[in-house]
């Protein structure tokens, strides 16, 4: 083998190495260039075509079948989950048994922010919303409130003394407004009607006779009837305010009860009944009926 022939072999080998590195062969010899082109063509064929075709056909079918099985499994799984969710939903919407004590446990994620002591007036009111002396536990699901409760420096329960230790002063003011505020935040109640308010808290709905101060105001927590007595003796005026549906009860109260002066003058009293803010207001007095009407209309 001549020196030139040996050089060609080495040059071809270098060209193949260059191809194997992903480069392009660079040779000055024409024959080496041509052979390198053949090698490049061989490289482009890739894996043996028969092998490739067999592999692709086999794998393609297998993978597609696997995917179908997987999809079927996922679909049936999703259908099962949906059915379970519907069952749970149906059970929750269906007629439920009376609430069991354990049902009162607040759900996970909710925070009991405060035990709200029901104000004495509210608990004793005729609406009967709170015949119990126990404070109401309010479960909060509102995130903002829960967050506030969690980030608050000290729980409200700890910050405020127990109900029995609190000063009794102004139970109908501070306590009530505090409760209203809390309840509004927590429960987002629909706005209450005046009659509902009166039923729950009779003192809240006392009507005022402009320019006059009542000599006596009595609030019956059981019947939710408010009696305001103006003046004594001959010019005694009694304003009786009550929730509309309990007209019979209120009338019974109005006739059965009352101050001595009023009872004494009962025989010569005129009566006017009007409805103000969903409450029935009876104005009694020894004045003519049109005068009583004027008084009734002026009430705020």
């Amino acid at each position: 083998m001549g020196h030139k022939e040996n050089e060609k072999l080495t040059e071809l080998s270098a060209a193949l190495d260059a191809l194997n590195r992903g480069g392009r062969p660079d040779s000055s010899d024409e024959e080496t260039k041509e052979l390198a082109e053949v090698a490049l063509l061989l490289k482009r064929t890739g894996p043996p075509p028969a092998v490739m075709a067999g592999l692709v056909a086999k794998l393609g079918d297998e993978l597609a079948a696997k995917r179908k099985r997987r999809r079927l499994w996922l679909t049936s799984g999703a259908a099962g989950t949906a059915a379970a969710a519907m069952l749970v939903f149906a059970f929750n919407l269906g007629p439920s048994a009376p609430p069991q004590p354990q049902l009162a446990i607040p759900p996970a994620g909710s925070v009991v922010i405060e035990s709200i002591p029901a104000p004495q007036q509210a608990t004793d009111s005729a609406a009967g919303i709170a015949k119990t002396d126990k404070p109401k536990d309010v479960a909060v699901t509102d995130k903002r409130l829960a967050q506030t409760a969690q980030t608050a420096p000290a729980p409200a329960r700890e910050a405020t003394p127990p109900a029995q230790d609190r000063p009794v002063a102004a139970p109908a003011d501070g306590g009530r407004s505090e409760q209203r505020l809390m309840m509004a935040k927590v429960q987002e109640k629909a706005p209450e009607k005046a009659a509902d308010k009166l039923a729950q808290d009779p003192a809240a709905g006392v009507l005022a006779w402009p320019g006059r101060q009542p000599d006596e105001v009595t609030v019956d927590k059981e019947t939710a009837i408010v009696r305001q007595v103006y003046g004594r003796g001959d010019t005694a005026i009694v304003i009786i305010q009550r929730v509309a549906p309990d007209a019979a009860k209120a009338a019974a109260y109005a006739t059965a009860d009352g101050s001595a002066e009023v009872r004494a003058a009962k025989g010569k009293l005129n009566t006017v009944t009007v409805t103000i803010k969903d409450t029935v207001v009876t104005v009694e007095g020894n004045l003519p009926e049109d005068e009583l009407q004027k008084i009734a209309r002026s009430l705020e």
């Binding site: 490739m52 592999l55 692709v56 056909a57 794998l59 393609g60 079918d61 297998e62 993978l63 597609a64 079948a65 696997k66 995917r67």
Partner: peptide, 10 residues
């Protein structure tokens, strides 16, 4: 290829 695409497999 995971979805059985033959071109991608190839």
């Amino acid at each position: 290829a995971q979805q059985g695409d033959k071109a991608a497999l190839e």
